[in-house]
Design a protein around this nucleic acid. Structure first.
Lengths: 144, 144
DNA sequence: TTATGTGCAAAATATTTGCTTTCCG
DNA sequence: CGGAAAGCAAATATTTTGCACATAA
């Protein structure tokens, strides 16, 4: 089991960098950390609005960018659609349905030494990697 | 060594699906297949313009989308910037410099059975996967 | 000949930003 | 109190699309 940082720990990390933990930021983070759906900024915005009715979409984007920079959320881009976000930052992989866009986690053990191998092959300093599977989800298989 | 489909073979594949091989389409494919730089639609557009001066950016996008659907080019999305394209469709991996955006190929043997494992773990029908490394390229390392 | 593709420009989509005001610490 | 963040709306960036005309097969 991975231990998840508490909101309190995150607050103090941010404070040390001169950043504040606003109500908006806390709720955005909370919404994202409490769903397994890998949502878009707009979906998050709609959830947050139920708690802070006059929050703006710009604020959601600004916070997602900041949280992403700080390594507190993952951002994933697919094709030309909206980016999707993930509050689970511990290394893990994803499968995505190319029909409906659903994204599931893959419980695959991490593949060892890949980064090191790539560093010696390419001369790059590798910081991380992304492994994503594409296909058709069980629901879409049924409906066809 | 992988054998690359010739433009002639591609033309006939397209023709069988009721599609035409126009001058624009041929040049776009040609430009993309003759660079190792994993370029953006705009870069391709500028190259194509040197051969077909009044080609439009819309045509480049339309063709890249069609060629991608037909499995003749790869499309890669990073962050919020432009998509990047690759004329090499045989399975291979990429490293990307998060500073300058440079993308290199990684000559890593493909990892066997990954898709099958993921299928049994998730219930998805996996068609392909994408493995991408992130880091800093040798040039950007020097300049810092 | 005729359906597919092109050029052009306008529209759509997704995200960012400027400015004033609010509020966390 | 002071600076970081929010709200709102306008601006950007990237990609798509409608329509009249051109062209490959």
């Amino acid at each position: 089991m991975e231990s998840k940082k508490s909101i309190l720990e995150i607050s103090s990390t941010l404070r040390n960098k001169g950043m504040k933990m606003t109500q908006q930021r806390r709720v955005i983070l909370d919404v994202l950390r409490n769903t397994k759906s890998h949502p878009s900024a707009e979906w998050i915005y709609n959830q947050v609005r139920q708690i802070i009715p006059n929050v703006s979409l710009g604020t959601v984007y600004r916070n997602l960018n900041i949280l992403h920079q700080e390594g507190l959320v993952l951002e994933m881009n697919y094709g030309k659609g909206q980016s999707r976000y993930d509050g689970m930052v511990e290394p893990h992989y994803h499968v995505r349905c190319s029909e409906c866009g659903r994204i599931d986690d893959v419980e695959l053990d991490s593949i060892n030494h890949l980064s090191e191998t790539v560093e010696s092959l390419t001369g790059f300093a590798v910081s991380d990697y992304r492994l994503e599977f594409n296909g058709q989800c069980p629901d879409c298989m049924k409906n066809n």
